[in-house]
Nucleic acid binder design. Structure first.
Length: 218
DNA sequence: AGGACGATTAACT
DNA sequence: GTTAATCGTCCTG
């Protein structure tokens, strides 16, 4: 049996990757629009793991006191300040990796944290990497990084290059009515107004599954 | 040089 | 609802 979720056949060969212009916009816009896009991990050795993005958060710049950019440019967050369309991957809590998509113009520190996926290709590999029920395999920012083997080696990589190990494909266009908007989560000791800014965007995996089925002409 | 803490997760009461 | 795990990063002094 192929390690692919049966109903989810919408990823088409030869479809163009999201181009840099998609990322080179305000982080909040990218966070909204990236829902339904397909994140693809192409590992050295040929295996391919992918999933549709179900949740994302925007971190807008050094003035955003929830952002790692709040202390200015450091070795750790350097990728945030670079060209849009690159990855910013960081390590936290002594054990977890997190993936961001770098947004905005070069020199501005915008980024979008990818917080949830609906798995498509590589489900067997994902199951091997984390023993959980299927619905809980990639429903968190650290969990999806483990599923796709995203770690420090991805930090700073260009998502738009033709040889990229990680990139995005256009997936499903989501109408506003299926997108839930709210404050970002997991922020400790972050003052207002940043704590309450509605910069978290979500679509339920069930709803996205239905839309993917429809799109693929099932 | 030392210490607080984190864009989380899983396990627990 | 609470808490431990676990260590790199950034702060203070």
């Amino acid at each position: 049996m192929p390690s692919r979720t049966p109903i989810l056949q919408a990823g088409r060969v030869g479809r163009p990757r999201l181009k840099r212009a998609f990322y080179a916009r305000p982080a909040v816009d990218v966070a909204r629009d990236v829902l339904g896009a397909k994140l693809v991990r192409s590992e050295p050795g040929g295996s391919r793991i992918s999933g549709w993005i179900t949740e994302a958060e925007a971190y807008v710049g050094p003035e955003d006191l929830a952002s790692h950019a709040r202390h200015g440019r450091t070795d750790r967050n350097a990728a945030m300040w670079g060209q849009a369309g690159h990855a910013y991957v960081f390590f936290t809590y002594g054990m977890h990796w997190m993936l961001n998509l770098v947004t905005e113009a070069e020199g501005q520190a915008g980024a979008v944290l990818v917080r949830g996926l609906l798995p498509d290709e590589g489900l067997e590999t994902i199951r091997r990497r984390r023993k959980r029920p299927d619905r809980q395999l990639t429903d968190g920012p650290a969990k999806l990084c483990q599923a796709l083997a995203i770690d420090r080696t991805i930090d700073g990589q260009d998502l738009c290059g033709s040889n990229a190990e990680l990139y995005l494909l256009p997936g499903v266009q989501l109408p506003d009515r299926v997108v839930t908007i709210g404050p970002r989560v997991g922020l400790n000791k972050v003052p207002e107004p940043w704590l309450s800014r509605p910069w978290r965007f979500r679509v339920s995996p069930d709803v996205l599954t239905d839309l993917v089925e429809k799109e693929s002409g099932a």
